[in-house]
């Protein structure tokens, strides 16, 4: 039986009485691109730092390719690379020196691919790190992670600071990695990025995993978005079974519908409907429906580091 790329069981982290992550159990098969979502302070970065062995769990375990992330950290790190949202690099080194160092420390790099990446991300590697913009520093980290062609890439807000062209380049690189069978664990606030790249998505709230599955799966169990245009009288649909978040303007009404459609259709059949369109929710709408319109969760008890 093939080990999953990433597996956690009951993984928890507390800072005193503050709960940063609670009882996280998930399994990510090899070759999957997994999106990890949650508002600030939900515990995403805590999870990533636990997977990297940078912090110790209060309870539970985490494995990468069947290797314990704490006890076998060095062996685990031979098979992974990590991209933080904002990397600490050595200001006195140049881009080339940094890439050389990180490649040698990792132990395996594809030199040709590295040179290709430097061109694709349009990075001047002769400059010292201290003279780079934030976006260019992020490119250094991205290239250093991609050039090793690791089995698993752990990405925490990887495109922060990148311009849209570079973001697009990054997506292409992730697609190529997926084609090569690499596993990607992507934590991001850019929901369109997650929607475009990820096979499955996990959503954290207050340190707990509240939703996991494919986008299709999530959409299936979530509310349908309906836009209805009436020719005559506009009814009050807020009390109709399964209907929520009703907004009306003139002859038009938009609403969310959970559960079977039939009861609403029975109500609508009594009125003159010009047009009725339905669509599945976007990831952003799914996300907002889980956290409320403001996209904010009650952060009580959750970690402060994302």
């Amino acid at each position: 039986m093939v080990d999953p790329a990433i597996r956690t069981e009951g993984l928890s982290k507390y800072y005193g009485s503050v709960r940063a992550l609670s009882d996280l159990s998930l399994e990510i098969p090899q070759g999957e691109v997994f999106g990890f979502l949650g508002p600030n302070g939900a515990g995403k970065t805590t999870t990533i730092r636990l997977l990297l062995g940078l912090i110790r769990p209060s309870a539970g375990m985490a494995e990468i390719f069947g290797l314990d992330c704490q006890k076998r950290a060095v062996d685990v790190h031979k098979r992974i690379t990590y991209v933080p949202g904002e990397a600490g690099l050595w200001p006195s080194l140049t881009g080339e020196e940094t890439l050389h160092l990180l490649g040698r420390v990792h132990g395996k790099i594809d030199e040709n691919y590295r040179n290709q990446l430097v061109k694709r991300f349009d990075l001047d590697v002769t400059r010292k790190i201290r003279t780079y913009s934030r976006g260019n520093r992020q490119k250094v980290i991205l290239i250093s992670a991609l050039m090793s062609r690791p089995d698993v890439m752990i990405l925490d807000e990887p495109t922060s600071g990148l311009d849209p062209i570079m973001e697009h380049e990054f997506r292409d690189c992730v697609d190529e990695a997926r084609e090569r069978g690499q596993t990607i664990f992507l934590s991001s606030h850019i929901l369109s990025e997650v929607e475009a790249l990820c096979d499955r998505v996990g959503i954290l709230r207050e340190g707990r995993l509240i939703e996991i599955g494919t986008l299709e799966h999530m959409r299936h169990f979530s509310a349908l978005q309906l836009e209805i245009s009436f020719a005559g009288e506009v009814p009050d649909l807020s009390s109709a079974p399964g209907v929520s978040v009703v907004k009306s303007g003139g002859q038009n009404v938009s609403l969310q519908l959970s559960g079977p459609v039939k009861p609403l259709l029975e109500v609508l059949s009594r009125y003159e409907v010009n047009r009725l369109t339905s669509r599945e929710p976007s990831l952003e709408e799914l996300f907002l429906s889980l956290y409320g319109e403001g996209g904010q969760s009650d952060e009580t008890g959750a970690g402060a580091d994302g």
Binding site: G53, K78, L89, V105
Partner: peptide, 14 residues
């Protein structure tokens, strides 16, 4: 303190 160790310790460095 300045986060540079994250880059080393997420690679095979004990």
């Amino acid at each position: 303190a300045e986060g540079r160790l994250d880059q080393l310790f997420s690679r095979p460095v004990g």
